[in-house]
Structure formats: C-alpha cells, structure tokens
Design a protein around this nucleic acid. Structure first.
Lengths: 341, 341
DNA sequence: TTGTAGGCGTTATCAT
DNA sequence: ATGATAACGCCTACAA
C-alpha cells in the first residue's frame, strides 16, 4: 500500500541496504551525498519503516506497558509521566492499560502484552483480588517472564515480582509520628482495603509509631474500607457518630484524606484547628485541574518510581523475583495539620 | 528464545500449517484429534504467537491509539472505557497516549503511531495550539491517513478530520436556556481557552439563548481562561470582586463549574440558593474516587463517543475528512441549580 | 563505502 | 484434511 524500502532504494538509485543504513541511522558509514539522496527520496515517498518487519527481524522489543487501576486516578498521573518520558528517552513507547480493578481485564491485558512482545510491563495498580485471582495472575506473570518480558511492580502484589516501591511501614510510621510530634495522642486511622498489602504496611507503621510513643492502640478509632474520597467521607462520618475521641487522623491515602477533610468541614469541624489530617501519596498537588487540596501528606516520588521502572526494564541486569528496591518519601506539611490546641 | 510454531509442530507431529490453522482458529477444518494434539503441545511449550510476524504477514493493523490531554483528567475516563472495551470486542487493543497539552509530545506520538501501523487513532484531547502548530499536526495527520491509518477526532480540531462530537453550540444553548427557564436573567459565563473551537461553540450557544430570551448580552460577566478548577475559581473570584451582578453562572466545563462552586462557597454564597451553576460534561459523576460534585450539567455520552469512534475505525466505510457526526447530550439537574428566589 | 542474499515467525496458496 | 513453500518488509552478515 504505502512506500517501502525498495521503492526508496529505486528512487534514490541505491541498494536497499544503503537505505536501511540511512534510515535506521545506526552509525554505519554512508557517503553524505548518498545519504542526502536517500533522505530526499524517503521524504518524497513519505516512507515510514514498517515496525513489525523491523521488530521481527531484530527480535527486539520496543513497548512498555503500564497497568493502572483507572485512567483518571490522579495517583497514577506522575507515574505515567515518568514512565512515558523515560520510555521515550530510551526509544521505547509506553502504553497505558486500565485494569478497572477487574482481574478479567487485567488477565486479558497480560495476554495481549504477551503476544505483542513488550519489553516490559509495569504494574502500577493491579486488580485487587484475593488469593485465587492472585494465583492466576502469578501464572501469567511467570509466563511473561519466561517469554523475556520484564515485569516490575510498583507496590507489593502478593507474589514475588521485582518491586520498586516506597516503604509502606515507614510511611505510616512517619505520618503518625508527625502527628504525635504535633502533640496529638488520640490519632484515628482510616485506611483502604484491610487485606491490601500496601495498607497492611501503613497500618503497621501507624501502630508502631503509637507504640514507640507509649500511646495505647485504640481499635475504636480505626476504620478501613476503600481508597476513595467517598470511603474517607463515610468512615469519618462513622467515627464522628460513634463519638470516638480523636484530635488527628492518619489516612492511608490522599483520596481518603480528602474525603475526611470534606466530612469534617460538612460537620462544622475546623481543619486543622480542631482536627489534624495527614494523608498519604501527595498526588493531589500534581494534577492541574484539581483544586489544591492542601493536604499535609507523605509525598511519594511517583515520577521517579515510573522512571526507574523503565530504566530497569531497559538495562540488561537480570532481575530476581525477590528483588526489592525502596524509594524515599517526604513529609509535606500543608494546611491540614496543626499543633494540638 | 521462546517456543515457536515449528516447535509446536514438531512436538505435535504435524506440519506448521496445521498448527497455524489450529492456533489462529480461523475456521479451516482440522480433525478434532489433531486439534487436541496441537493444543496440548502448544500449552506444554507455552507457545505464544509472535504478533510482529503475524502482522507483517497479514498486513493487518491491530492497534487503536487514544490521545488524551492528561491521563488523570476525568473528562477522558469514560471515553477511554468506551474505546478500550469496544476495541477488545473487535479483537483490537487500545493504548492511551497523553499529550500533556504539548504539541511536541503529540507529534512524537503520531510518528510512533505511524510506524506502528495502528489501525486508527482517536484524538480525544489534542494539544492546544495556535495555527502554526495546527499546520504541523495537520500534515502528520494527513500522512497517517495516507498510510491507511484512520483518524477520528472527538472534538473539532481546527482542521478537517472525521469528527464525532456533541453539538457544542447546542450544549451552550441548552444549558443557558435551562438557567433562563429557572427564572435567571443575569447569567455569567465562565469558559476555557477563548480561541478553542469547543469553547467558541458553547459561548455562541450561550449568547444565542440569551438573545432568544430577549436578554441583553453583558460582557462584564463573561470570563475565560482555562479548563481547570483553579481557572473556574479565579474567574469566579474576579467576577465577585468586580461586583458584576449575576444570579447564575454557565460554565463551559465541569472543572470550571467545580471551581466556581468552591469559590462561591468560600465566599459565603449559597449554591444554589443565591447563585445557580450549570456545568458542561458530566464527567465528575463517573469517577469513583471523586467526591460527587453534584453539579447540574449537560451530560456528554462519553462512553458512546469512544465506542462509536472505534466502530468507525473497524468498519470499512471510507471516511471523508469533512465527515461530522453529532451525538446527543442530556440536561442533568443536580444540586447546583434552583429557581431564582 | 556499497551491494547481495538469507532469514526473522507467521499466514496463505497451492499441491497432495 | 494436511503439508510444502513463498511471501510479508526489514536488517545484517558477508562479499565486493
């Protein structure tokens, strides 16, 4: 249908090898005059190399897949940017796939990624599933690895894959400690899925910080449901209704924190004067169309996380499945935290 | 590296043609017993067909690209779902590319899409550029079309491409008329980029509705800047400070409307009791982690828009560049509109 | 510095 | 119903 390398060669009056060498620009010596001729011919014919043929011949993989939970969850915003930009720098092309938190979808994606011979897949936000679904996922992930596709997770997945992530226990610990250092001792915890590994880690950190400060753990002011604004709102409301005493809340995710903030506001409670809130993630600040939530939070290095994952895929270091890499987080204090007054 | 068709053939004791027929499952008759043997062999070897070879041989395109402005803009949430799910149903695979409102990025994407021989590209949200960048975009889009890649826009782009969209003038008209029918006559307009075709349409509709109702157009209560919550907030604040009189606001986008809502609230103005707000799009309701904004709005058929675009790409009807298709919108009344009191 | 030719893993055509 | 073989478009030894 469209022009191919032979057409360009014919028009330029050279062999296809010469054209190939000019087009792929691989450093192989070609006389400048010839190069010009080839380029001119290619331009005239609107020649575009066929990447299937190239891939097939080179046995090289050139795609990076990023799996996210939902395309519009701001949590993934900077992860995606890091992945996309790093991929480009390495001559690869990143595509985003949305799992919708649905294992069926995720499985389908993996099988496509398998066929498409991607260089790697970055699991930014996989489906949330129990141990049965995990087994199926684990299987297909192993298959991907067998095919030479590198798999990198950006959070613990419940089975061994090379993982780059934050230290979730440390995150929970730092956040809670921050609240303690502001004089709070009645600190509620509102988390996401109770059996999500990520949440378990943050919750452990929360408990550890309390313990270290000699504060008794009070299960009455602990709530968990899901990582959403609504979840935060509802759980906060429940806390208020049961009249649990607390002057601060640690939320294991900024969506939750934002919901809590709204709930408190709707109930005439001043933030941070009456109650302080610490969130987790820091992703609200990165999204332009969001109103700045001004959350005090533990900021994750989302961009770097994505960037690093791509670089690991690109490099030829062999990755063991038990490989774990931790990236640093940062305490950010904005307008939802204050000294206990 | 990994198993290929010859390996499967050898293990199953048949020819590669037979394997191909079984694997591609193309209806060609194969004896059941043989089929079983092949399937077993393929499974044992973890055989996965190489899609590059397949694509090369079949000259078939199997990718759909969706260009969005930002991965986390909820505006694209249901468009993406529609595209992804429709693509799957048609045996295609959709990838999302984020333009970041950056023409350079967008150009790079198009050139990759060109090489990758995508079946089609859906321009959900292109870069926002002036006429010079439009020229470059137009060129590469023409090139895509020449290569046999179908291009569909989901909003006017400033140059001719087959477009499926809502009728933006009608949208602005209906929204304004709705406010008028609630008894409002001093209706402010807060829009996005003043020279964005989409906004021009909505603004025209706004003016037309006023005119039809015999209301004088008042340029003092019209503001435009950008499609963001912050933009809505700031423009609303400016309106309040200049003491322009208005009892309702039509916002040409829900981000803006949400910002306006926040601004009014922060200034002690009750919505909708004191001031009514109509938004545009209805995308806040579709995103789980969002707190329901409860905006009265003109709801767009995002999912169908994406779905229809895919179906147009898949079908072999030839698309003229001046093809335009309009999809219906719906007035949704929630908690930001009330009769003028 | 340039050209020739073989092969990457499929599918499809043509025999059998 | 099955098998042999020639493409698909490109890259890359190897030859010149």
């Amino acid at each position: 249908m469209s022009a191919q390398i032979t057409d360009v060669a014919k028009l330029a009056g050279v062999s296809i090898s010469t054209v190939s060498r000019v087009i792929s620009n691989n450093g192989y010596p070609v006389k400048p005059a010839v190069r010009e001729k080839v380029l001119a011919a290619a331009k005239e014919l609107n020649y575009v190399p066929n990447i299937s043929a190239k891939t097939l011949r080179q046995q090289k993989r050139n795609g990076i897949a990023l799996i996210v939970r939902s395309i519009s969850d701001p949590y993934f915003n900077n992860i995606e940017r890091g992945v996309t930009e790093a991929a480009f720098k390495n001559g690869l092309i990143a595509s985003v796939f949305t799992s919708m938190q649905d294992t069926e979808f995720e499985m389908k994606y993996y099988s496509v990624i398998l066929e498409q011979q991607y260089a790697g897949v970055i699991i930014g936000g996989g489906a949330y599933g129990g141990s049965k679904t995990n087994k199926r996922l684990k299987n297909i992930v192993r298959q991907l690895q067998n095919q030479g596709c590198k798999v990198i997770a950006l959070a613990p997945q419940g089975f061994d894959v090379p993982t780059i992530s934050v230290d979730n226990e440390d995150v929970g610990f730092k956040a809670t400690k921050q609240l303690i250092s502001l004089g709070h001792s009645q600190i509620a915890y509102i988390g996401g899925y109770p059996d999500h590994l990520v949440d378990v880690g943050r919750f452990n950190g929360y408990q550890k910080a309390l313990q270290e400060a000699g504060i008794d753990y009070n299960p009455l002011i602990v709530k968990m449901s899901e990582y959403s604004i609504q979840g935060g709102y509802d759980n906060c409301k429940a806390l208020l209704e049961q009249k649990g005493e607390f002057s601060a809340v640690y939320c294991s995710n900024d969506h939750i924190a934002y919901g809590v903030k709204q709930c408190l506001r709707d109930n005439g409670i001043r933030v941070p004067k009456d109650i302080s809130i610490m969130g987790t993630g820091g992703f609200y600040d990165d999204v332009g169309f969001f109103f700045d939530a001004n959350l005090s939070t533990i900021k994750f290095p989302f961009y770097s996380l994505g960037e690093r994952a791509v670089n690991m895929i690109v490099s030829d270091e062999k990755l063991e499945n038990d490989y774990k890499e931790i990236m640093a987080t940062e305490v950010i204090l904005k307008k939802t935290t204050a000294k206990k007054g």
